[in-house]
Write a protein that binds this DNA or RNA. Structure first.
Lengths: 141, 141
DNA sequence: CAGTATCCTTCATGATACTG
DNA sequence: CAGTATCATGAAGGATACTG
């Protein structure tokens, strides 16, 4: 029915209101999601139509964009307005909670931006140490 | 060599310093990662040994804990100290950048906690609307 | 235009068994 | 104790073709 077999996460039918821990993790998983964040950021600058999102979405596929938008809509972070023109016109935007999320996300973006260099350096160091350890073990030549 | 075939993310060998956009997304993906956040939160209360993390890790497997710790270590968010006792003793803790990350993550946790009810309600509403639309389409009886 | 449906490949994760 | 190696499975994501 939806864009794939298991379109929207549901632990078990009717398990709503079980442990909020599950829901929190579910929400956090959006942040790591490949397309949720970029979609929210795009919509943070103003509402957009599907095609616009697709074009600006840094290579997101139609299938993934639909899926991401449905998920965000189901979470209550994004609204959808379909106008029955021919062909149909659909507009997406952030709901108030969606805007709020973007606000608390911003410090995280800043942390990430500030620490890009540190993380990359750490990668290099870690990989070097690994490589050296390996060549020590194997005698390297 | 590591715990699975492709232990740590590397776009291409030597592509360090390419686009920071990639790195930022890579970092954000830790937040959505099933075990990175819970590991960091546990370590945020103080350094712990592997076994302790395993026990407190809400069902994380040995393999996944190792993998998560390696990744966080490579990112420079977590330090590792092995003491050559018999058997070996290994302790993990947050680095200063790791602590910083936890700080900017806290507003996100708060948002998630505050919005758990809203999100769950949104799920119910969305699913109800879907179900109603389906029964309308199929005549339901 | 804005999707859906289907196929296919790769990746993530868990279970299990083994080791310095 | 703190891992590593291997296997198996399901989910994630992309490509493509079709439609109201």
């Amino acid at each position: 029915m939806a864009t794939n077999g298991k379109p929207l996460t549901q632990p078990e039918a009717g398990s709503h209101g079980a442990d909020s821990c599950y829901v929190v993790r579910e929400i956090l998983s959006r942040v790591g999601d490949k397309w949720s964040v970029v979609t929210c950021v795009l919509l943070g600058e103003g509402s957009l139509r599907f095609g616009e999102l697709l074009r600006r979405g840094h290579g997101v596929s139609q299938r993934m964009l639909t899926q991401t938008l449905r998920q965000l809509e189901r979470d209550g972070l994004v609204w959808r307005k379909a106008t029955p023109t021919v062909p149909v016109t659909v507009e997406y935007g952030l709901t108030p909670p969606g805007e709020d999320l973007l606000v608390v996300l911003r410090p995280l973006f800043e942390w990430a931006t500030k620490n890009v260099t540190m993380v990359q350096d750490s990668w290099v160091q870690y990989d070097d140490r690994l490589a050296r350890a390996a060549s020590d073990t194997f005698g390297q030549g």
